[in-house]
C-alpha cells in the first residue's frame, strides 16, 4: 500500500514482505520524483536503508531495519522507531541517524561525517576506525552503555557514551576501549577502571571547549528523545584520547 500526500511530498510504504532490493529501488524512484519524506511501516530486516539517496531526504522507519542501514550514506536523515542491527552508518559521509532503541555491532564503522544518536545501549566495536577530515567531524552519541572495543582504531570524530541505566557507582562494562586509537576523542559519563582502556588511551578531565562540544551534542541527543540536557550533563565525564598519533611508529627497522 502506497499513499502519497502530494502537498507534503510524503510517501508512505508498507514494507511488509518487500525484499530490500525492491524496496530501495522504490525509494530511489520516489526521491527522483520529488518525494522529500518517506514513512516506512512494518520494516522487518530490510538492509541498506538510506544508501544511495540524495541529501535532503528524510526516512521515518517503523520496525526493525536490517544490517548496514545508512551504509555509505551521504546526507539523508533517518529516524528509526525500533532497534538497529549491525554495521549501521558504515562508511557514512553525511546525514543523521536517530534510533529510538538500541544498536548492534560496528555502528559507524569508518564513518567520516554526520551524526548518529542511539537512545539505549550499543554493541561491540562501536565507532571503529571513525575518521575526521577538515570540517567533517562525525559524532556518535549513545544514551546507554557499550560493549567492548568501543572506538577501536579510532582515527577521528567524537564518541559520547552517557551511561544512562547504569546504577549509582556501576562501571561501564566495555573492555579494550579505544584499542589502537590514534585520533579523535571519546567522552564517557560514569566510571571505568584503567584496565578497561586500551594501552594507547589516556584519561583527562574535559576542558571548557570539550564542555561546549558536549553541551551541543548532548543537547541534540536530548532534543531527539525528550530528555533534559542539564540532567544528562550532570555527573562526571571522562575524556579519553590517544596518547600518541603514531601508536605504531616504532614497529619497523628503517
Amino acid at each position: 500500500m502506497i499513499l502519497l500526500d502530494e502537498a507534503e511530498q510524503v510517501l508512505t510504504i508498507d514494507a511488509k514482505g518487500v525484499y530490500y532490493r525492491e524496496l530501495n529501488a522504490r525509494l530511489r524512484d520516489a526521491v527522483e520524483n520529488g518525494v522529500k519524506k518517506v514513512v516506512l511501516n512494518n520494516i522487518t530486516g530490510q538492509r541498506y536503508l538510506g544508501t544511495d539517496l540524495p541529501g535532503e531526504v528524510e526516512l521515518e522507519v517503523h520496525g526493525t531495519p536490517g544490517n548496514d542501514l545508512g551504509a555509505f550514506m551521504n546526507g539523508p536523515t533517518v529516524t528509526i522507531h525500533g532497534n538497529l542491527q549491525d554495521g549501521c552508518g558504515n562508511t557514512m559521509n553525511a546525514g543523521t541517524i536517530v534510533a529510538h532503541g538500541r544498536a548492534g555491532d560496528a555502528l559507524g564503522y569508518a564513518m567520516r561525517g554526520g551524526k548518529i544518536f542511539v537512545r539505549d545501549d550499543v554493541g561491540y566495536r562501536v565507532g571503529i576506525h571513525m575518521k575526521q577530515y577538515e570540517g567533517k567531524v562525525p559524532a556518535i552519541v549513545v544514551g546507554g552503555t557499550a560493549q567492548p572495543f568501543l572506538g577501536e582504531y579510532m582515527a577521528g570524530g567524537v564518541l559520547v557514551v552517557l551511561g544512562m541505566g547504569l546504577q549509582e557507582g556501576e562501571r561501564h562494562r566495555a573492555n579494550f576501549i579505544g584499542t589502537g586509537m590514534h585520533n579523535g576523542v571519546i567522552f564517557l559519563r560514569g566510571s571505568v577502571e584503567q584496565h578497561q582502556l586500551g594501552k594507547e588511551v589516556g584519561v583527562r578531565e574535559p576542558d571548557e571547549a570539550d564542555w561546549q562540544l558536549l553541551r551541543s551534542l548532548v543537547g541534540e541527543f536530548a532534543g531527539h528523545f525528550g530528555f533534559a540536557t542539564e540532567e544528562l550533563l550532570r555527573g562526571r565525564f571522562l575524556k579519553l584520547l590517544p596518547l600518541s598519533l603514531r601508536p605504531y611508529g616504532r614497529l619497523y627497522a628503517y
Binding site: 532490493r21 530501495n24 538492509r47 541498506y48 544508501t51 544511495d52 544490517n67 548496514d68 551504509a71 555509505f72 549491525d86 554495521g87 558504515n90 560496528a106 564503522y109 569508518a110 566495536r125 571503529i128 576506525h129 577501536e152 582504531y153 582515527a155 589502537g180 590514534h182 598519533l245 603514531r246 601508536p247 605504531y248 611508529g249
Partner: peptide
C-alpha cells in the same frame, strides 16, 4: 598515520562479504 587494519571490521565470513558486496551494489 593511515592505518589499514588487517581485516575489514564488517567482514568475518562469506555472508558478511556478501553484505558489503551488496552494500556497494546498492550504493
Amino acid at each position: 598515520d593511515a592505518l589499514s587494519p588487517a581485516p575489514h571490521h564488517d567482514i568475518y565470513s562469506i555472508e558478511d562479504l556478501s553484505q558489503l558486496i551488496y552494500a556497494l551494489k546498492e550504493a
